[in-house]
Write a protein that binds this DNA or RNA. Structure first.
Lengths: 157, 157
DNA sequence: GGGACCATACTCGGATAACCTGTGTCCGAGTGTTAATGG
DNA sequence: CCATTAACACTCGGACACAGGTTATCCGAGTATGGTCCC
């Protein structure tokens, strides 16, 4: 069970975008240069955040990506599930109904207890991620961070 | 982020083994037939549980797998991590120290706030899984289940 | 009859191939800018 | 000097290869069993 490497990229990129002036945009190339990442692949993954409504993309010169909502309304869960999908890592295939030990359908009206417990764990994980917003992340950074980020980002063409 | 399909197999196999008489064993072929699974691959994955000390394997005729500890001392977490590994799904590669926006090392003494939050979510997931033991799973099954399992398992040569 | 021995068949264990989801790359469609040009 | 126009350069968006890991399979090493033979 592992998340795509791009998950880290997107979390950092979103954090960076949240530090820009309101309305300002950053292109995929700028963000890639900022973190030394493959630009094309990063752009592809940023699309996932656009599709899920976390970011907004504008084309043309001076275009790029920006947050679609205030940082306080964007949770880590939304970003993680945008890139990785919202499906549970444990997928119950009902093997209890297969093979020699197959249970009769009337015993399988309730969901399998194992799937239920695995689902509960996944929900705990989701709750933990949903409890932190991008604004919370910004609050944990040093107060000098936004100015520094804007300054370092400005230079990239 | 998805767990191997074999995760479900192993959880069900362990539940089945926990329903056998104390000291009784079931071979990989028996378990595979019981759930209609590929026997060879199931055997390979059962090895992971043996290596992690959850199961004990005995070779030779009348051999097979059995629980290495009482069911109450085996948690879902131990089994899941046995097959999937104990590493966190989110791996921080410290991209904050790379590229044009690289932070100086003195600002990176603490772990990245994003990695910290992702780690907390993973810990919440682990805690949830560690809270359920195999004995808890057995307790949730109908009281007629163990007898039925033993009966159905006995026939498989 | 009892015990030792041996062949046997059954078990796990590790080494060896396909398939599938990320990972990485590329080029095309669309758009705001910007410069030149004419009135 | 100002409006129009047209070319441009920059942006995202989707389509096309590569790789590592899960899935699946096979055969070999080891052992408890059961029968057999000898005492």
């Amino acid at each position: 069970m592992k998340l795509p490497v791009s998950t880290e990229w997107l979390l950092h990129c979103a954090t960076t975008l949240a530090q820009l002036d309101p309305g300002a945009t950053a292109s995929a190339a700028q963000l890639a240069q900022y973190f030394d990442l493959p630009a094309a692949y990063l752009a592809k993954q940023l699309q996932a955040l656009v599709r899920s409504g976390v970011l907004t993309a504008t084309t043309g010169p001076r275009g790029g990506f920006r947050l679609a909502r205030p940082a306080a309304e964007i949770t880590l869960l939304q970003m993680v599930e945008a890139v990785d999908g919202a499906s549970s890592p444990y997928e119950c295939r009902e093997i209890r109904q297969q093979g020699r030990g197959a249970l009769p359908p009337e015993d399988c009206r309730n969901t399998c207890i194992l799937a239920e417990k695995m689902g509960e764990a996944h929900e705990a994980w989701r709750r933990s991620l949903a409890a932190t917003s991008l604004a919370d992340i910004l609050a944990a950074l040093p107060s000098s961070a936004p100015a520094r980020t804007r300054r370092r980002m400005a230079g990239t063409t």
